[in-house]
Amino acid sequence: MRTVAAHCLLSALLLAASGCKKDQDAQGPYGTCAPQTQSVKSATDVEGTVQFDTAVQQYVIYRAVPGTYDSMDIGVVCSTLPADLQVANAPVRFSGTYRDYGNAPQAGPAGRTYYYLELTKVTAR
């Protein structure tokens, strides 16, 4: 009887562990947030700057909107940036998907738009 119970417990643990692994793989290396929100635009191998945003209390990537002189996309990074990039004013090169942020903070100057940013790649420049 103990053997049957042990096998059932072991099987349940293996099943649970494999389920968690699949979820992690589906999210990509830097995580997914707000998957129910609409994908707004993508970025491929673009330059940005890391900042700690006090309005959302986490690291974000600022990117100047091409063709403008005062507009910024603020990507609230899903999951966590690598530790070596969690430095104010760190220049980065990244790729990913911007998603609708919804109820964005109103702090700061006009021309700043908040998005969730699902990174597929991020490196120091």
Rank of each mutant, 00 (worst) to 15 (best):
N89D: 12
K21N: 11
D100P: 03
L9A: 14
L15I: 11
E118A: 11
E47I: 00
D100I: 00
T68K: 12
S71C: 07
V87E: 00
D23R: 15
S95L: 11
Y62M: 09
V56C: 06
P29F: 02
V46P: 04
C33R: 05
T49C: 03
V4R: 15
A107T: 08
G19C: 14
V60D: 01
Y115E: 05
A110Y: 09
Q36W: 04
Y101I: 00
R2W: 01
C8I: 13
Q86V: 02
A90E: 15
V50G: 10
A17F: 05
S79L: 07
S71N: 11
R125Q: 13
F52G: 06
Q86Y: 02
A83R: 03
A26L: 13
Q106R: 09
L81F: 04
C33T: 06
L85E: 07
Q58Y: 01
T68Y: 07
Y98L: 15
E47N: 09
V60S: 03
Q51W: 07
G67Q: 08
A5R: 15
T37P: 01
T54D: 08
Y116D: 03
G111D: 14
Y116F: 15
Q106D: 09
V50K: 01
T3G: 12
A64K: 02
F94W: 01
A6I: 13
P105C: 09
N103G: 02
L117H: 07
G102K: 06
F52V: 03
P82K: 02
Q58H: 05
Q106A: 11
R63F: 03
P82V: 01
Y101S: 06
K22P: 09
A90V: 01
S79D: 15
V76S: 09
E47L: 06
R2P: 01
Q86D: 01
G96V: 04
Q106L: 13
T120D: 07
T80D: 12
P35V: 02
C20K: 11
S39A: 09
Q27R: 15
K21W: 13
Q51I: 02
A90P: 10
K22I: 13
Q51K: 10
T120Y: 04
R93G: 10
S39E: 08
V122A: 05
K121C: 00
A110S: 13
F52I: 02
G31K: 09
A90L: 06
A17C: 14
R112M: 10
S18E: 07
T123P: 07
A16D: 04
Q27M: 13
Q57T: 04
D84C: 05
L13T: 13
V122L: 06
A90Y: 01
T97H: 12
T123Q: 14
Q51S: 08
V4I: 12
N89T: 10
D73L: 00
T54N: 11
H7F: 11
T80H: 14
P82E: 00
